[in-house]
Write a protein that binds this DNA or RNA. Structure first.
Length: 489
DNA sequence: CGAGGCGGGACTAGTCCCGCCTCGGTGCTCTAGT
């Protein structure tokens, strides 16, 4: 079968979208591929279509259970039943059955954590894996070094499985992140497809205020005026929830919160209601977004600044997927950079915790250690990961881990300052982003950014100015209009 | 850094204020007990 035939008959498309065909060709030639495509350009087709043209199974590493479930459902809709998501949603019987029949699947979705569970690699060795896909591959760099260290083992796992060709897919990755991806996946001379991160239909704006209170008031104004639907990003679950109440109290309807502290069920419900236009505004933390395929989002507001330009770009990139004019507004008040700086720090163990852990972890049980050293789950995982990796004497190990911690901390702090410089700069915001991502050319849209030319009222809801008038003046205005209509007759 | 919670002291006895402390995001997995 030819790829065009599969495209039409299986997926129901008459042509490829920008970038897809070249990537698919490289995959079919069994080359390692690193592809950076803007959000919403159909990345999953790049491995799903080859799945029908090559022998064997496509293994897809995915960061979220919900993304895996989504993809399996999407595949079911086009009649594909030989797809499975291997994750904790499967009960033990279903999992046992799936593991026994692994080689019958065309597509297997799995998390990095599940891949590293005992016996999993041996199971997969009996399957002929013909393509090793890493969806949202920037997670390797963004999460692998601390939050989810299993991401760093993917390259070794790939080799264990006979080094099948790899396809790494992402939407935003600066050069150093791409280097990380290549290194940790052990890609050999990968074919790289890098498309521009620029989204000309998203106008970029920074709103400066002096205090937190002022920010809150200005946010209410903006939400009232702007065309919806929209997302507001916060770096705190509590503040996100408080803002939902504040907006509701002030007459904003169809607004809800979304963050990682909520029940899985509640999260799915909120996301569905947003996709179905039953909710207009989501007050969210960075937990919201991956896999949210909604094409008519008109604004993305940042109430807190993200810790890095990549996160910012990924978050604003959720606006305007339909190609219509949309706006991204980042609200900044002096001192805002402190929060992301703190967040970068407290994820990593402190120096004294490294000392204490390495010196006593063989003597005490884990529960006691965690309580004694006040370790968070992430800190503990970081320590365990590097404890297992090292086999030299304790002092050497400790120094090595402290160096790793220092490097990681520096990296994250530098990322925050890059974001900060972007906010403070007086250069075209779009041009700076392009430069940060190593690009040179872009065409300036009519509404570019607050430094260039830009009129925020283009993004207001049409009726807003009438609603804002008091009822009296509204009547007067209507009378005027009627007079104007009547007089000429 | 900055917001919020909490404890204690003060003064028309239950409320108010001040100072101190803590916390702040992202997700996978399994296990034990209902």
């Amino acid at each position: 079968m030819m790829k065009f035939q599969v495209l039409q008959e299986r997926f129901g498309y008459s042509s490829f979208r920008n970038g897809q065909e070249a990537i698919i060709d490289a995959v079919l030639k069994q080359q390692d591929v690193l592809a950076m495509l803007p959000t919403g350009t159909g990345k999953s087709l790049c491995y799903q279509l080859p799945g029908y043209l090559i022998k064997g199974t496509v293994l897809i590493i995915s960061p979220l259970i919900s993304l895996m479930q989504d993809q399996v459902e999407q595949l079911a809709l086009i009649g594909e039943r030989k797809a499975i998501a291997l994750n904790s949603f499967l009960n033990s019987r279903a999992r046992a059955k799936a593991l026994q029949n692994l080689n019958q699947y065309r597509f297997i979705y799995i998390s990095p954590e599940m891949l590293r569970m005992e016996g999993m690699i041996d199971r997969l060795k009996n399957v002929s894996i013909s393509l090793f896909v890493i969806d949202e591959a920037h997670c390797i760099s963004q999460w692998g070094h601390d939050f989810r260290p299993d991401y760093l083992s993917l390259g070794e796992i790939r080799e264990c499985l006979g080094a099948p060709p790899a396809l790494a897919l992402t939407a935003t990755a600066q050069k150093e992140v791409r280097d990380d991806i290549k290194h940790y996946l052990k890609l050999k001379n990968p074919n790289e497809f890098i498309y521009s991160v620029d989204r000309p239909n998203i106008a970029i704006m920074i709103e400066r205020v002096q205090t937190a209170n002022e920010k809150k008031q200005r946010l209410l104004e903006l939400v009232r005026q702007l065309k919806k639907p929209g997302i507001i990003y916060f770096s705190s679950k509590r503040v996100a929830e408080e803002m939902v109440e504040h907006l509701k109290l002030n007459g904003v309807k169809a607004v809800a919160a979304y963050h990682g502290g909520m029940d899985q069920e509640q999260r799915i419900l909120i996301q569905q209601q947003f996709l179905n236009d039953q909710l207009n505004v989501i007050c969210a933390t960075s937990a919201f977004g991956m896999g949210v395929n909604k094409n008519n989002i008109r604004f993305v507001i940042h109430f807190h600044m993200p810790g890095q330009v990549e996160s910012y770009l990924q978050e604003i990139g959720r606006a305007g997927r339909d190609g219509q004019e949309s706006v991204a507004i980042l609200m900044y008040s002096p001192g805002d950079e402190e929060l992301p700086l703190r967040l970068s720090e407290y994820e990593l163990p402190e120096k004294w915790q490294i000392d204490a852990y390495f010196n006593t972890c063989q003597l005490k049980n884990e529960t006691d250690l965690v309580a004694e050293l006040r370790l968070s789950e992430t800190q503990l995982r970081f320590l365990k990961h590097y404890y297992l990796l090292n086999s030299q004497d304790i002092e050497q190990q400790i120094n090595k881990v402290k160096t790793i911690r220092m490097k990681r901390l520096n990296y994250k702090v530098n990322k925050v300052w890059q974001m900060y410089r972007w906010i403070q700069s007086t250069d075209c915001r779009r041009k700076q982003i392009i430069t940060i991502f190593g690009e040179n050319d872009y065409s300036k849209p009519a509404d570019c950014c607050d430094i260039c030319t830009f009129d925020l009222s283009n993004y207001y809801e049409e009726l807003t100015h009438i609603e804002n008038l008091s009822s009296n003046s509204w009547v007067k205005r209507l009378q005027q209009l009627l007079k104007q209509e009547v007089n000429p007759l």
